[in-house]
Design a protein around this nucleic acid. Structure first.
Lengths: 148, 148
DNA sequence: GTGAATGCAAAACCTTTGCAACTGG
DNA sequence: CCAGTTGCAAAGGTTTTGCATTCAC
């Protein structure tokens, strides 16, 4: 399964990545915390439990490498610390201003993220980054009950 | 015209903003540099020519205030320094990886930025932020000529 | 064996903050 | 007059870097 990163498999997706213990741990932590979309330091905290000597700089390095290899996506919401996401499907992110949770939002079948936009000719798009902000169902209920 | 920010007009758009020299200068600079989508320090450089005593912190303050008032949009591309944009129409940004330029991309007539996305119910969207990355027409031509 | 990756600490970078002085309404 | 804003310098948080050591292939 594609849930593990080893030197023998995944040579396609992860390219010629040299496989170190640290990279494995970092990748596994991101997978395990996927629903939280952890920051680098959140990853560091958990990674340190599994590998006490790992350093923050190494976590940053690994996350960058994994990002470049396409194994992980770096999610930037405004100027807050980057968060990481192992979901490889094209998707957007929804950030709840109330609880700081991030939700993955899937692209509709056959839809194109750039379709609502008037794209000038000659422009080559490599990636489209979509981040929404608002209130999630959980927090929405509460605020409805209290403020409305 | 809406190009100037004075205490007598624009009370609607700019709310009850106290109008200071610094805010006026900062706003005018952002307008004048609109096509560059300047960073706070780029705004600072130019603002200083017009008002030598202005401080960087004040530029940051003004930009934040103007952002909150809706007169200006803060544009974040990855983790780079925020850039600012006086375009009030709903629009996306296209960032050219080759020359660092930012282009405003208009929303198509009657289109909705969130339409390509499978939105879970109960989620209240307050804003949608769309940033594309790629190569602009100018840089595209060059790279075509040299690399292809 | 060798180039790449790690760990540590220090630096870089953008942005915010504390506080006294000032100013717009 | 007085709350809100400024300027300055110092601090903040996140991320990167330099370099000697270690490791994967």
């Amino acid at each position: 399964m594609a849930d593990q990163l080893t030197e023998t498999q995944e040579t396609g997706v992860f390219g010629g990545l040299r496989m170190t213990k640290q990279r494995q741990v970092v990748y596994e932590v991101v997978k395990d915390m996927a629903s939280e979309h952890p920051t680098a330091s959140a990853v560091y905290s958990v990674a340190k439990e599994r590998m006490p000597n790992i350093s923050l700089a190494t976590v940053y390095n690994c996350l960058e490498t994994l990002s470049e290899a396409g194994a992980v996506t770096q999610v930037n919401i405004d100027r807050e610390a980057s968060r990481f996401c192992p979901n490889l499907m094209p998707h957007a992110h929804f950030f709840c201003s109330a609880c700081d949770a991030i939700y993955d939002i899937e692209l509709r079948e056959k839809a194109d993220a750039s379709s609502p936009w008037e794209l000038p000719e000659g422009l080559k798009i490599e990636s489209v980054n979509v981040a929404m902000r608002g209130t999630c169902p959980k927090c929405g209920k509460e605020s409805c009950a209290t403020s409305k």
